[in-house]
Amino acid sequence: MKRTTRTTVWVIDPDPILRRGLRAVLGPAAGITVLGESAGVAEALAAWARQVPAVVVLEPAALGPQAPAAVAGLRAAGPHVLLLAERPAAGEMERLLLAGAGGYLAKTAGGEVLAAAVRSVAAGHRVLDGGFRPLLAGPAPEAQPRPADVRLVRRLSARERAVVKLTAWGMTAREIGERLSVSAKTVETYRSRACAKLGVQSRAELVQWCFQAGLWTPGDLEREPAGPPGGVQPGGAG
């Protein structure tokens, strides 16, 4: 008799009640095994020493502005990512799909729909809730992660590296400018230069590259950056 391969799942949410609810829904589903749950991304990664799940289910709103970086980090670690939301903003949804999310499903979806979405995402298919499709200007974007050449880091100036790391942390150009004592326009200039040097085309690709190169780790989600990274002095030349 042929043995059926089960899809392993990990649930991430800061609310323990929501985590238990998702486990209760997915646990009995055919072909699905819930390996565990955690309140955050860093805790999940630390727990995957023995087995990395096939799919991670989480709500991006719980991660705040660091959601794209968290999704990119999870994908770099191996699992596919299925996001649950009430009704995301169009820009947010595209950023998360480009960061590597395999699917976006309404939180109101039934148990059978959720289980089917998990299996589909695990198989490498893109899943998008029908109610969310009108939020996209065109077809759902496909993430195209590629290995990072860490040698390219040496091409970045100290200021460019600082901007890249803070971008991966989820900060806007204005927020980065305030932290580094430069204008938002100057931040965009540094970011454009960094993208050109690293061979990436978008902010989402830049975040993915940052994870793969080891410039930023999911553990950073657990703490606010203390100051300009990499020893960069505010207002200094880059």
Rank of each mutant, 00 (worst) to 15 (best):
P65F: 06
A49P: 00
A140M: 08
T33Y: 00
R95V: 07
D149E: 14
G199D: 05
V200G: 11
A46I: 00
A117Q: 02
A89Q: 09
L58K: 02
L63A: 12
P68C: 06
I12C: 10
V52R: 15
A173H: 09
V25H: 00
G27W: 01
G231D: 11
I12E: 09
R146G: 15
R133Q: 12
S202R: 08
G235F: 07
P28T: 06
E142R: 15
V118F: 14
V52W: 04
E142Q: 14
P141D: 10
L58N: 04
E178F: 01
V127I: 14
R223W: 04
G100D: 09
V56M: 05
V34Q: 01
P60M: 10
G131N: 13
P60Y: 08
C210R: 00
L206I: 04
A148D: 06
E37L: 03
R191F: 08
G214P: 09
R87L: 14
K2L: 11
D13H: 15
K165E: 15
L83M: 13
T186G: 12
S157A: 10
I17Y: 07
Q233C: 00
E205T: 02
M93L: 15
L82E: 08
P218F: 05
L152N: 11
P234A: 11
E142T: 13
G78A: 05
A62W: 11
M93G: 13
W216G: 00
A39Q: 13
G170Y: 10
A122I: 01
A90L: 06
V55N: 10
I12S: 07
V25K: 04
E222W: 01
A90E: 09
V187G: 07
K185H: 09
G231V: 00
L84I: 04
V52C: 06
V57N: 01
L135S: 11
M171D: 11
S38I: 12
P228L: 05
I12P: 08
V127S: 12
T108L: 08
A47Q: 13
P234T: 13
L96C: 07
G110N: 12
A137N: 06
R119M: 08
V232D: 01
G177T: 10
Q51E: 15
P141T: 10
V182R: 15
G103C: 03
R174M: 07
L18S: 11
A62C: 07
V11T: 08
A42E: 13
L166P: 06
A77I: 02
R154M: 02
K185E: 14
L82P: 11
P225D: 11
A109G: 04
R174Y: 09
V57H: 03
Q233D: 05
R19W: 13
V187N: 08
A143E: 03
R23Y: 00
P141I: 08
M1A: 14
A226P: 02
E175D: 14
G31E: 10
A137G: 13
R223P: 00
W209R: 10
A140W: 09
P16T: 05
T108W: 04
K185C: 00
R95D: 15
L26D: 01
R191I: 06
K165N: 01
K185I: 07
E142C: 06
G124P: 06
V34H: 01
A49T: 14
V71S: 12
A77F: 11
L135E: 14
G111E: 07
V121D: 11
M93V: 01
V57W: 03
T172Y: 03
R95E: 15
L206R: 01
E175W: 05
